[in-house]
Design a protein around this nucleic acid. Structure first.
Lengths: 157, 157
DNA sequence: CTCTACGAGTTGGAAAAACAAACCCTCAAT
DNA sequence: ATTGAGGGTTTGTTTTTCCAACTCGTAGAG
C-alpha cells in the first residue's frame, strides 16, 4: 500500500466533533443553554483561559451554533446565545450528563437536576423514533454506506 | 476578590468530558462499538497518530470504559472492547451522529446508517423517561444543587 | 474632571500536547 | 535467513494551551 496519508472513516460523529469536540466547546454550549452567555460568566463558570474561550466562541459562531448578540449599545456589550442548531445539541449534553451522573458519582451528589415540563425530573433516554424503544447496543446493526469501510460486527465485553 | 484559582461549575458533563472529551476518544469508542478494536484498525479508521492513540487507550482502559483483551497467545495480541460503561456511552454517539447527519450534510450522503432491531432505520431521539416525550429545550428547567452556582434562565436565539 | 471599575476581549512568552516518521520486539510463515 | 504482521515506543518538530498582564470604551463616584 502506497503510504495512505490520513484517510479516516467518513463519519458524522467525527464531523460533529470537529466542530464541537475541542476542549471547552461543549461546556460553552452548556452555559449558553443555561442562559449564561456573557464572556466573563463563561470564563468563571467553565474555568477556561480567556484567549482559548475567545477562539472557541469565534468558531462556534462561525459554525452557526451560537450567535453573538449585543445586549447593550454604549458600552457595547455582547452575549452569546444558542442558535436552533445549537439547541439541538442539548440532547447530547443531557445524555452525557446522565452518563456522568450514573458512572462518575456515588448516587445523590448530582450537581444539577433538570426538571422536565411534565413535572418529573428529567432522566434522558435515547429511543428509536420508529418503535419508541430505548436503544441498546445489542439491538443495533451498523451499515456503512461508503465502499471500503466495513465493520467487524457488534462487540461486547 | 482574592485571585480565584480555577473554580468551574461542578458538573457531570464536565466530568464525563474529562474522561472521553479528548481528541479521538469518542472515535475510539465508535470503532470499538463497531467491533474494530485492534490497534492498527483504530489507527487506520480514526486517522490518529499511533502514540496519541496509545495514550488514549490507556486512559480509557484505566477509566473502565474499555478492556484490553488478548485474542491470541503466542503471538500475543490484544484487542480493545467496550465495557458496560463504555456501551452506555453509545447513545451519546448516536445522538451526535444524528446531529451531524442533520446539520452537516445535505440530505442523503450519510456515511453510515444504523438499523434498529425493530427493522427500521434508527433515528435516535432523546426522551423523558417519565413521560416519554421528546426533549425540547423549552421544556427544561435547570436546578443547580450546589450553592453559589445559579443559572440565568433559559436562553434562545 | 480625574479615578476607578466593568466587560470583553488581545498580546506575549513559557509549558504541554500533538504530530510524523522511524524504530523495536515477538512470533509465524516462506 | 528473510519477510511480514501486530502492537506498540522513541525522537524530534510543530501546534496548542495556558497564564498573566494589558488594552479599549464607557459609566459612575468623588
Amino acid at each position: 500500500m502506497a503510504a495512505a496519508p490520513k484517510n479516516p472513516r467518513p463519519c458524522s460523529i467525527a464531523d460533529a466533533l470537529a466542530l464541537v469536540g475541542e476542549k471547552y466547546s461543549l461546556l460553552v454550549l452548556r452555559e449558553v443553554c443555561l442562559g449564561n452567555g456573557r464572556f466573563d460568566q463563561l470564563v468563571r463558570n467553565i474555568g477556561a483561559p480567556r484567549d482559548i474561550l475567545a477562539t472557541r466562541l469565534r468558531r462556534l459562531v462561525e459554525a452557526g451554533i451560537l450567535t453573538r448578540q449585543p445586549y447593550s449599545e454604549r458600552p457595547q456589550r455582547f452575549e452569546y446565545r444558542p442558535t436552533r442548531a445549537g439547541l439541538e445539541l442539548e440532547p447530547v449534553l443531557m445524555t452525557l450528563m446522565a452518563w456522568g451522573d450514573r458512572h462518575l458519582r456515588t448516587d445523590d451528589d448530582r450537581p444539577m437536576v433538570i426538571e422536565h415540563v411534565c413535572g418529573n425530573e428529567l432522566v434522558p433516554q435515547v429511543t428509536c423514533r420508529a418503535c419508541g424503544e430505548s436503544v441498546r447496543h445489542e439491538d443495533l446493526t451498523a451499515h456503512p454506506q461508503v465502499p471500503g469501510w466495513t465493520v467487524t460486527g457488534p462487540a461486547a465485553v
